[in-house]
């Protein structure tokens, strides 16, 4: 299953909820303000690093670049472009957006 999160971890609990609910092996795609969660030095970093052992975590590159954060993605998180976003949706049988 693919989980999509678009809220900043500092502002909403969407990512937290997602990490609590998602099953091992799930894919989690961070887009829009959620990409901040995947950057080095943010307070959610350790949280997300722990999650990396259970999930495959992606962040949308155009959203990282828009926010000036393209060069500080934490290790273990894969970046994808819009094509990759579409591929992820197509590869998984269902999808939950944590709005």
């Amino acid at each position: 299953m693919l989980h999509i999160v678009n809220k900043s971890p500092a502002e909403r609990n969407a990512l937290e909820s997602c990490l609590r609910v998602a099953q091992d092996g799930a894919a989690i795609l961070l887009i829009e303000d959620a990409v901040y969660a995947a950057t080095r030095g943010n307070t959610a970093e350790n949280h997300l690093r722990d999650a990396l052992s259970r999930f495959k975590i992606y962040a949308l590159a155009p959203d990282l670049e828009a926010r000036g954060m393209g060069d500080r993605v934490m290790a273990g998180v894969a970046t994808v472009d819009y094509g990759g976003f579409v591929d992820l949706v197509a590869e998984h049988k269902n999808c939950q957006s944590w709005l």
Binding site: A10, Y36, A61, R67, G68, M69, G70
Partner: peptide, 17 residues
Amino acid sequence: MDDGIFQLKKGQQTKGI
């Protein structure tokens, strides 16, 4: 304050979005 400081982050490139 809070996430508002991201408004001032250097290097924003919004072409992609």
